[in-house]
Nucleic acid binder design. Sequence first.
DNA 1: GTTCAAGTTCAAGTGAACTTGAGTTCAAGA
DNA 2: TCTTGAACTCAAGTTCACTTGAACTTGAAC
Lengths: 159, 159
Amino acid sequence: MDSRDLLPMGEISHRSGFAASAIRYYEAEGLIEAHRSGGGQRRFERSVLRRLAFIRAASNVGLSIEEIRDELGRLPGNRTPTKADWHRISKHWGARLDEQIAALQRLKGGLDSCIGCGCLSLRSCAFSNAGDWAAQEGPGAQLLPDSLRKPHPARRTSG
Amino acid sequence: MDSRDLLPMGEISHRSGFAASAIRYYEAEGLIEAHRSGGGQRRFERSVLRRLAFIRAASNVGLSIEEIRDELGRLPGNRTPTKADWHRISKHWGARLDEQIAALQRLKGGLDSCIGCGCLSLRSCAFSNAGDWAAQEGPGAQLLPDSLRKPHPARRTSG
DNA sequence: GTTCAAGTTCAAGTGAACTTGAGTTCAAGA
DNA sequence: TCTTGAACTCAAGTTCACTTGAACTTGAAC
């Protein structure tokens, strides 16, 4: 590995479209790796660009950093995805997107069925009842999957 | 307005499915209003339940508090939505959902077209290039609308 | 009159995914 | 050598939509 093949922060940032701070963050989170120059500056292998493209794609699908880390970690040898890896992963993501699309369509369907009645009834209307507070019964439960719910950060899942 | 018609916090909370803290928050944000008992406790009109159902429905569609406040504010006389209001609003939200569905389908289409090639090329692949960093040109720009992008809170819009 | 669940306020915390700022150092060209 | 832009670290800040905790008060029942 000739050191002239390594790219400095500015170039990685510009070519990937990520801010330097984001790239440092991804390194800290273990999504990418960097060599260091004599003076301590980051020097990136070219393959990091591909990894960053992967990260951008994944986050467009709605994956969290955690999930992206997992996904990258599942690649044999923890390498940058090859064509075959990418094929497999794409199918996985495609399924996720299909699920999200279906969820929105269910929500839309519920909305359409409410347009006529104008009810917005607390107990019976599937649309306003779409939260999980009434999940034990009733038609509205799970109209939206977690991946499309707005994150309610402080709502602890334990309990 | 007989004070026996007014509901205390516990009941509003239980019937709406919102935590008391959330209801207080909505009041502070101006989405709902409350009377006060002699001792300073909140007493809610029955119509607040309807307003809360509206808020839940809106947030299921992905509207922010800000947007919900606008939407409620646009109701003539700032009243709880009637059937006619609800009809109009539903159409509005339906369009928004359609847009979100279409965006996900575009993203899915991009993914499908990438499955074969395994490219993930930074410059040419519509999928990994879906951010707005290259929005000036190229095919990938605006695959996803803002409403479906993961919120990147610290990214200031001014500049 | 006592009890105590239910209510109150206010400040601070939560999580995700970064950004910003301050203060310092590196590296490359003139 | 000087300058200057690029990079560094580390702590703290940002947004959203709430929640949590502490310390206190109400109000309905017994």
